[in-house]
Nucleic acid binder design. Structure first.
Length: 188
DNA sequence: CAGTGGATGCTCT
DNA sequence: GAGCATCCACTGT
């Protein structure tokens, strides 16, 4: 299932080291969540990253200390969750794109109005809806309630590919997934 | 299946 | 006023 609680120090490295290690970790919000099966890396010098043009009110927490959440609204409809990496002052973060639901399936079904477990958390907006993530959690530390983040117990078979839904830096292969998982937002 | 378009809000130009 | 790190419903094979 899940191992030791991930400490803030885990995130105090470049996102390109952290992101692949997040695959297989367990993410819970108020006890509801599951195993991370898909993330994307965004860094300081990345034209596709919100931090690329410098710090703004929206992206403040992305420039904050590592091991915290950066939550933003997407397309005016959905919320997206990032796990902030690197040292304070830089802007590096891993976008959590999909979970394999393991805890609180009923709560997720209620929030999503769905039955199929496969579709509960198979996308960044979907998983935020399923876990009840909103701007309220922006900037909060990941090693304190309501968050709970548990390290993977064994190394996961990794799939790597280009990121989804962006228009700049499309060629960077900074999307990581659990190979073969049926809970991905899209196949690799 | 694949492809299209609408909903919706906020940030940045 | 454009442009999104999206999702869903709808269309047409």
């Amino acid at each position: 299932m899940a191992g030791a609680r991930l400490r803030r120090e885990f995130f105090a490295r470049t996102v390109h080291e952290v992101a692949p290690e997040l695959i297989g970790a367990t993410l819970l919000v108020d006890g509801v969540g599951g195993k991370i099966v898909e993330v994307e890396a965004y860094d300081q010098d990345d034209p596709a990253s919100h931090g690329f043009r410098g710090r703004t009110a929206r992206t403040a927490s992305m420039f904050g200390p590592p091991g915290h959440a950066y939550v933003y609204r997407s397309y005016g409809v959905h919320w997206c969750l990032n796990l902030v990496c690197a040292e304070e002052g830089r802007s590096e973060a891993a976008l959590v794109r999909a979970l394999e639901p393991t805890h609180g399936l009923e709560a997720m079904r209620e929030r999503r109005g769905l039955e199929a477990a496969r579709a509960l958390c198979s996308g960044p907006g979907k998983l935020c809806q399923a876990l009840g993530i909103t701007r309220v959690l922006d900037g909060l530390p990941l090693d304190e309630a309501p968050f709970e983040l548990l390290a993977r117990e064994s190394k996961a078979p990794l799939a790597v590919g280009p990121r989804i839904g962006i228009t700049r830096a499309v060629e960077q292969p900074w999307r990581y997934g659990l190979a073969g998982s049926p809970f991905l937002s899209r196949r690799f």
